[in-house]
């Protein structure tokens, strides 16, 4: 019979914007085996400390709001079950920190607007759309062509990859921003390619990547981010 409860210890990094103070609080929680970390944090709020701030929204891995670092690994806390965490990290003590991709607002909540600012820079939309067919019908994009880049469209901007990336976000727009640019280079409906290449090959672009593949390793959507960046480096992202 598996354990049905675990006594876990959380060491949570706190920050108070009113006093600009940083500290670590420790919470002991009796947690059910299939509770997710978002459930555990809610339990802490309900039963021990209502002031602990953290973010989430859909709580099933589709929105990327609950990213945080647990024992150093950037991940979605809605996808981490207590039982799996105990086995994966081989401990019942967990250090929880905010992602380090933007300034902290309070506790585990970061200024996501700042992180997104880097994605906005690559223009995550079609700049110059190819006109629809003569009779106004949809474009023709074969499933094979879509298949080349569809994985890159699955990114939810959780910024886990950006947090894991060894290249600093001060001079690199980041793996997810690169993906967003690559998608529109590979998308046959986008007619404006040159300015996209300019962004990709700029000094904040893909040459900042050291091919460590940390991004692919942590991506909760299991997107092989580094693969797409490598394609771009090799000039293999032109539409078919």
């Amino acid at each position: 019979m598996m354990e049905s409860f675990y006594d876990i210890t959380l060491n949570v990094h706190r920050y108070d914007p009113d006093t600009d103070k940083r500290w670590i609080d420790t919470y002991q929680v009796k947690a059910g085996r299939i509770m997710r970390f978002v459930d555990v944090l809610r339990k802490v709020n309900d039963e021990q400390d209502a002031t602990l701030a953290w973010g989430s929204s859909c709580e099933h891995g589709q929105c990327g709001s609950c990213s945080m670092k647990i024992n150093g690994k950037p991940l979605l806390s809605c996808e981490l079950l207590v039982e799996n965490a105990v086995h994966y990290f081989d401990t019942t003590t967990f250090t929880i920190e905010p992602l380090d991709v933007a300034p902290v607002i309070r506790d585990l909540v970061i200024d996501t607007d700042k992180a997104y600012g880097r994605v906005d820079k690559v223009k995550p939309y079609i700049i110059k759309p190819k006109p629809l067919g003569e009779k106004g019908e949809e474009h023709q994009i074969s499933p094979e062509e879509l298949e080349r880049y569809v994985d890159a469209t699955r990114c939810i901007n959780c910024f886990c990859c950006a947090s894991a990336c060894i290249s600093s976000h001060h001079n690199f727009l980041g793996p997810n921003a690169m993906l967003a640019a690559i998608v529109r280079v590979m998308d046959p409906r986008e007619q404006e390619k040159q300015s996209r290449f300019d962004t990709l090959y700029s000094e904040n672009g893909i040459y900042r990547c050291h091919s460590s593949q940390a991004c692919s390793f942590v991506c909760p959507k299991e997107i092989d981010v580094a693969h797409f960046i490598a394609l771009a480096k090799n000039g293999e992202i032109k539409p078919a």
Binding site: S142, L146, T153
Partner: peptide
């Protein structure tokens, strides 16, 4: 479709 949604084909 014309604004870039990646519909399945």
């Amino acid at each position: 479709e014309n604004r870039g949604m990646h519909f399945s084909r």
